[in-house]
């Protein structure tokens, strides 16, 4: 009966998730002036059409950094960086159960991973001290909203940059290329997501992965959980048959469950960017400047090696694209 409830919720969410973005804005009903809004007539619940409208953009292209980075601790007046400096800490929105990207280390209680490293990098650039970072854990379906409400300075949370989201927030340049795969039990005969028709496949509510499950032709049943940790719990409790999301997140799960395996090829492209408010583009430019430096001086590669090195040699960092 609980499963049925979950399914019902999942279906409702699926129905609601079609308009524009999978995570509806907190002020979805009352349009906020001054921000790019969904065009009129876009409210009809057709995911395809909204994607097409938004498809004209290039989500990988971000704002170009302006000149050299300011010295740490000396942020230009009137910029968002100066605000952060005044506050004394950078607020990073992320999750605490995505192993390798941002998860809580049970031994130390600290949240760590590739995404958190990036946050520390930005804190280092603003303060000269990577520790001046406050981690705020957010639900997957709140990633846009916390940025819109200025509750965090930036979100680095395995977040796919896409055109639908770009209407509400700015993204940094792409810092990681992922793609969706599927995790099943070791004894499963399925070769790819197409073989999972009618099976319950879990993903985090508000993630693009969740939407993608609904688009698979063999029609697996999408099941939404608050975050991916809950998906793995549901998988181990036999509440769902599979989990589908970005390959790197799945690899982190498979590392925790020797009875699980990741199957198939990437069936989507998920370029990760950091979400930043459109209200202060100078911060987006600043972050892109920091990323540019990290790509050049090997910081990116070092962090990649540390967290993701187990999946093969360190690749070239994704090249920055600008509008």
């Amino acid at each position: 009966m609980r499963t049925r409830l979950v399914l019902t919720v999942a279906l409702l969410l699926a129905a609601a998730g079609c308009s524009g973005d999978s995570s509806p804005r907190y002020d979805a009903d009352s349009a906020r002036p001054g921000l790019t809004q969904a065009a009129p007539g876009q409210a009809q619940p057709s995911g395809e059409s909204s994607r097409k409208t938004a498809g004209s953009c290039n989500p990988r292209a971000s704002l170009r950094p302006t000149g050299a980075l300011p010295q740490p601790g000396r942020m230009p007046d009137g910029t968002w960086m100066a605000q952060i400096r005044k506050r004394g800490r950078l607020i990073l929105g992320t999750s605490q159960d995505t192993l390798l990207f941002s998860s809580r280390n049970p031994f130390t209680g600290q949240v760590e991973g590739f995404d958190v490293d990036l946050g520390r990098l930005i804190a280092q650039a603003v303060f000269g001290d990577p520790g001046k970072l406050q981690i705020k854990v957010i639900g997957y379906d709140q990633r846009i909203n916390v940025v819109l409400k200025n509750e965090v300075d930036l979100v680095a949370d395995t977040m796919t940059a896409n055109c639908a989201r770009l209407k509400d927030v700015d993204f940094s340049t792409i810092y990681y290329e992922a793609g969706q795969k599927v995790l099943v039990s070791k004894n499963s005969t399925a070769k790819s997501i197409e073989d999972l028709g009618g099976k319950r496949v879990c993903s985090a509510a508000g993630s693009t992965s969740y939407d993608n499950i609904g688009k698979v032709r063999s029609r697996p049943i999408p099941v939404a959980k608050a975050n991916f940790g809950d998906c793995l719990v549901a998988f181990q409790q036999n509440e769902v048959d599979a989990i589908s999301t970005d390959d790197t997140i799945l690899a982190g799960m498979a590392a925790q469950d020797p009875y699980a395996k990741v199957i198939g090829e990437r069936y989507t492209q998920e370029p990760y960017g950091m979400a930043i408010s459109k209200e202060h583009p100078e911060f987006t430019r600043f972050v892109n400047g920091v990323l540019e430096q990290a790509r050049r001086d090997g910081t990116w590669a070092k962090s990649y090696e540390k967290w993701l090195g187990r999946f093969g040699p360190v690749p070239q960092p994704p090249a920055a694209q600008y509008r």
Binding site: D97, L99, S103, P106, F107, G229, D230, L232, V233, Q256
Partner: peptide, 12 residues
Amino acid sequence: QGLPLGASYLSA
């Protein structure tokens, strides 16, 4: 076992 999944079980 030092796995972050423990936290998810705890929250469940």
